[in-house]
Nucleic acid binder design. Structure first.
Length: 589
RNA sequence: GGCUCGGUAGCGAAGCUGGUUAUCGCGUCGGCCUGUCACGCCGAAGAUCGUGGGUUCGAGCCCCAUCCGAGUCGCCA
């Protein structure tokens, strides 16, 4: 009985010299040196090993093969006469007695070069993802993902969480994103939906008496993609705890995440527990964003009152925010280029001035700042060589947020990239005035417990407080400016639920109609519970230091939610459609 | 759907103010080379410049339309 292999390609060392071995793998490269002399690089999952071809007969076998064919090599391990210290197996080589072809690569030109696949056109990479993934660099991200998922599972189990799977075919939910629908064969005209998150199931598990639940949960949302958002499907570390508070949830993740970030992250410095808590309103006030990047030391200051009597048109009667950036060596041209970048992203114009070597105000809108220099200096740092970037108007806050991230990354000395900075954003508003309706609406989701419970809602109902001032026990986990996760203390009390709905002109019937299972379940005695669901893909993306979420997904779809490799979505047969009682109507031209 | 950027041999790029034979690197094929390791040297093949129309004596380059891709906004509790 012949073994497929005795060793892998990353394994052999000098002490193996003289052993008879059998290796298998892909023929990565052939370096011919002389007539009947060549080096073949054999690659498998574990590494590469050099094979020396010294005879005519074997040379013929090799020459007959295209690169990336799979072969088996049987032979003797030998100490190299010229070693390569850069390679783990660089001290040895294998002298083959027999070479066997296992899987012929039928093409002598590949859609891209394996070891440079990351530079190739993304469409080609996705279509030939199985070749792209042969690149050890690309493979490394998937390996990292596996390790991180295992570590998360182990850590959650350590904290006494049970992994419980929840249905993939479920009911369409009226809240949130667009659902993926699945026609029900046995129920003409009816549909299942793929879950946007196991939200309701996990809350029902709490109601059922499970104390700590988690799941590496697939979630499906039919929304457009982004660099950090995969279209269609993604994974969450979904968790929920019964009889728990916000701080209980924080404590679990503050315990689970830092060691994993420290061990698997590209950068090995990660903030430790407790993570900073920043109120939603403060996050906007100081960072212009509800997902601040705390690696950046810049904050924005309100200078609206200083420009009360300004002659500068764009600032007249507007909110004005300023960001002071010390020790800035950017030229005028560079500053304006960055400002333009910010404008594209935030959709509103930015302004600037700076202080020169002597601390005099110069450049940009200097003319309008000089008269109020002293007041300005009491508000922000105006020491020499400080750049001040400003934004004004309705979107001043958001614009300032973009400016902080852009200039923070561009101006030297204001951002330590090589670390992971976590923070909790807390005290989210419960309600907001809807853009379209102009009326009070839920700000995020209606499952969250309003801080202060029923009492607060009643006060708002009686007009004693502004409903917009009500906050929810809801929180986001943010890392390096990336929203990793949203969570909340849930509203487990049917009475408070109905009252919360009444404030947005809905009532008990709406709650029952929208969330029948949960509403009914909560009427049988529910535990107070809280949870969160960090995005696994985004976490791995941060750990790998990648900018595109597709780099850490084994088989990603493209921006248009197509799987180019499998050819999905695709048309189906008429028979399939008939069974599902589905008729296709052609879109009119 | 809006905006921005892009599409040039199998792959990655260059291509000036429109000018005659469209460059360069990698890969492929052939030759040389017995210690390479991103091997080296010599040579060759390989391009409807995304597509369609227009301007022009002349278009990879300018104009119009259109397709495809990426980023971003909308959207995503």
């Amino acid at each position: 009985m012949v073994q497929m292999r005795t060793h892998n390609c990353g394994q052999l060392r000098l002490q193996n010299a003289g052993e008879h071995v059998r290796l298998v793998g892909w023929m990565e490269n052939v370096r011919e040196v002389g007539n009947n002399f060549a080096f073949v690089i054999l690659r498998d999952f574990y590494g590469t090993t050099q094979i020396v071809i010294e005879f005519e007969e074997m040379m013929a076998t090799i020459k007959d093969l295209n690169k990336e064919s799979t072969i088996a090599v049987e032979g003797i391990v030998r100490e190299r006469s010229s070693k390569n210290p850069k390679l783990p197996t660089g001290e040895i080589e294998v002298v083959p007695e027999k070479i066997e072809v296992l899987g012929r690569c039928r093409y002598n030109s590949l859609p891209f070069e394996i070891n440079r696949s990351r530079e190739a056109d993304e469409t080609a990479r996705l279509k030939y993802r199985y070749l792209d993934l042969r690149n050890p660099e690309v493979q490394a991200n998937i390996i990292l993902r596996c390790k991180v998922v295992s570590a998360l599972r182990a850590a959650m189990a350590d904290h006494d969480f049970l992994e419980i799977t929840t249905p993939i075919l479920t009911a369409s939910s009226p809240e949130g994103a667009r659902d993926y629908l699945v026609p029900a064969r046995k129920h003409p005209g009816m549909f299942y939906a793929l879950p946007q998150a196991p939200q309701q199931f996990k809350q029902l598990l709490m109601t059922a008496g499970f104390d700590r639940y988690f799941q590496i949960a697939p979630c499906f949302r039919d929304e457009d993609a982004r660099g950090d958002r995969s279209p269609g499907e993604f994974y969450q570390l979904d968790m929920e705890m019964a009889f728990a508070t916000q701080e209980d949830v924080f404590a679990v993740l503050e315990d689970v995440l830092p060691p994993i970030f420290a061990k698997y992250g590209k950068y090995n410095i990660a903030s430790q527990a407790p993570f900073r808590r920043i109120a939603y309103n403060d996050a906007l006030r100081y960072y212009g964003s509800d997902k601040p990047d705390l690696r950046i030391d810049l904050t924005c200051k309100d200078v609206t009152d200083l420009f009360k009597d300004t002659e500068f048109g764009p600032f007249q009667g507007q909110t004005v925010k300023a960001i002071d950036i010390s020790d800035c060596k950017l030229t005028r041209k560079q500053i304006e280029k960055l400002l333009t970048e910010c404008e594209v992203q935030s959709g509103s114009k930015g302004y600037w001035f700076k202080t020169d070597d002597k601390g005099e105000i110069a450049g940009g809108i200097a003319k309008f700042v000089t008269p109020i220099k002293d007041q300005m200096a009491s508000r922000i740092d105006l020491s020499p060589n400080t750049l001040v970037v400003l934004s004004a108007g309705e979107y001043a806050v958001k614009s300032a947020g973009v400016q902080i991230k852009t200039f923070g990354a561009a101006v030297e000395g204001h951002m330590d990239k090589e670390r992971y900075e976590f923070c909790w954003i807390v005290d989210f508003p419960m309600y907001e005035i809807g853009d379209e309706s102009g009326e009070l609406e839920f700000c995020h989701n209606p499952f969250s417990m309003p801080s202060g419970g029923l009492e607060v809602l009643l006060k708002a109902e009686r007009g004693e407080i502004d409903p917009l001032s009500i906050t929810a026990d809801q929180y986001d986990l943010v890392c390096n400016g990336v929203e990793l996760s949203s969570g909340a203390v849930r509203n487990h009390d049917p009475e408070i639920m109905v009252k919360a709905f009444e404030l947005v002109r809905l009532g008990e019937e709406d709650v029952k109609a929208k969330f029948p299972a949960m509403y009914n379940a909560f009427c049988y005695g529910a535990p107070p519970h809280a949870g969160i669901a960090p995005g696994v893909d985004r976490m791995v993306m941060l750990l790998a230091g990648e900018d595109s979420i597709r780099e850490i997904i084994p088989f990603p779809m493209n921006k248009n939610a197509q799987d180019l490799m499998m050819g999905a979505p695709s048309e189906v047969t008429q028979k399939q459609l008939d069974e599902l009682h589905i008729q296709i109507t052609k879109e009119e031209e």
